[in-house]
């Protein structure tokens, strides 16, 4: 007689489709069409939200003004990943940085191709226009400005 516990296999059989939302449409279409970052502006709190939101989280005003943000920013934090989520070694280590932009509230976490230090200046490198799909991966990576 087996002493193995009796087991039942199970799964959670759902998948998802997300809309990017009202502010997300502005953000991703600007990247797709113009290769440019866009923030939404709260003039009463003097904050430019990047990525944009349709509301200011501080005063809950409706935000309808959008302002361009420079594609060049500063590295706030940086790491190099050597393993994937299962602990397997990556063929190529991947650099990841939190980048903040002048005059913008928030920032973007994205890949880098260079080894960076906190405080380095970096620039967004976009895919060719015809390859952009309205995804955060339309930005290929951030590169160091020498």
């Amino acid at each position: 007689m087996t002493t193995e516990p009796i087991r039942v296999e199970g799964d959670f059989p759902v998948y998802f489709r997300y809309t990017v939302g009202v502010a997300g449409e502005k953000f991703f279409r600007e990247i797709m069409e113009n290769g440019r970052l866009m923030a939404s502006r709260c003039s009463s709190c003097n904050l430019n939200y990047l990525p944009p939101r349709i509301y200011c989280e501080r005063c809950m005003s409706r935000l309808e003004e959008y302002v361009p943000v420079e594609n060049e920013g500063t590295v706030e934090a940086f790491t190099i990943t050597h393993q994937d989520a299962e602990g397997n070694p990556l063929q190529e280590p991947v650099g990841v940085a939190l980048v903040r932009f002048p005059g913008a509230y928030g920032g973007l976490v994205h890949r880098t191709i260079d080894v960076l230090a906190i405080g380095d200046r970096v620039r967004a490198v976009f895919k060719d226009k015809k390859e952009r799909t309205g995804s955060i991966l339309d930005i290929k990576f951030f590169e160091k400005i020498s």
Binding site: Y18, T19, V20, G21, V22, A23, G24, E25, R53, I54, Y55, M60
Partner: peptide
Amino acid sequence: RAQETGKELAF
């Protein structure tokens, strides 16, 4: 099917 995100609906 809302285009708004959940956060935007809440707002």
